[in-house]
Design a protein around this nucleic acid. Structure first.
Length: 233
DNA sequence: AGTAACTACATCAAGAGTAC
DNA sequence: GTACTCTTGATGTAGTTACT
């Protein structure tokens, strides 16, 4: 059985939905929604309960209200901490990717969603490829400088989409059993071999015969670069 | 048992819009 | 302007559910 969190302090799912809807409506129509519109959207059938939530949100400081004024409500700056989540995708960081260490294993069917701040990155959906729904994305933190050939440095976060195959030109995370190494490369299928092309043009590609083992673990959707250190030479 | 968190339903007043 | 209608917000009451 599922049940709501019943702490009288603090914000619940419903509060967040109300805030998200007010924000969305405001952006779309240039004015706040009515209480009934909120109720309809948030699946609350009673205007009094919507009002009840709005009162709580006002007390918590997410909302300002003009009494007795139709649609008299404004979101406060405090809302940004919460409501942006609607346009943001929380991607869990499953672990490190480093040469010589196996990639963290994905568990099929397990939701990757997490509440932990420390182990996830928030990505604006607008930055993702348009068709990407982002359902199964995960992130890996690059350890060491072994990915320099993919123009990725220590501490960068790579956002991955699970995949076992890739099309030419896609950047993939591959596990090379023969070298016992994980690496990020552009993937090309050639006549009887795979070409793993480093992003850095001064480096030579790796060729893998099609008979040799090669495990594609995922496609790189996005790289988040940390700028807190100078670029390695 | 007591209470918070509802749902459902009802009622009222203020404004806005529309018709005459 | 006056009358009527509709929307909206505010308020109240009764009953339900689930947690403490």
């Amino acid at each position: 059985m599922m049940m709501m969190v019943r702490k009288s302090k603090g914000i619940t799912d419903k509060h967040i939905k109300v805030l998200e809807f007010v924000n969305e409506y405001q952006n779309r129509f240039g004015r706040p929604p009515s209480i009934r519109e909120i109720g309809e959207k948030v699946k609350i059938s009673s205007t009094s309960v919507v009002n009840y939530y709005l009162e709580q949100l006002e007390k918590m400081g997410y909302l300002e209200r003009d009494n007795r004024v139709s649609r008299g409500m404004r979101l406060t700056g405090k809302v940004n901490q919460i409501v942006q989540a609607g346009n943001m995708l929380r991607v869990p960081i499953l672990g490190p990717i480093a040469a010589g260490e196996p990639l963290p294993e994905l568990q099929p069917g397990v939701s990757y969603m997490t509440d932990s701040e420390a182990e996830a990155v928030d990505i604006a959906r607008s930055l993702l490829p348009p068709k990407e729904k982002g359902d199964n994305l995960y992130a890996l933190e690059v350890k060491g400088n072994s990915m320099i050939d993919a123009m990725i440095n220590d501490g960068d976060i790579v956002v991955m989409k699970p995949a076992t195959e890739a099309r030419n030109g896609e950047m993939v995370a591959v596990w090379l059993p023969s070298d016992n190494e994980a690496t990020l490369k552009y993937f090309f299928k050639e006549k009887d071999r795979y070409r793993l092309q480093p992003a850095n043009p001064t480096l030579k590609p790796i060729y893998i015969k099609k008979t040799e083992p090669l495990e594609i673990k995922g496609k790189v959707v996005m790289v988040i670069r940390k700028m807190d250190k100078p670029l390695a030479a």
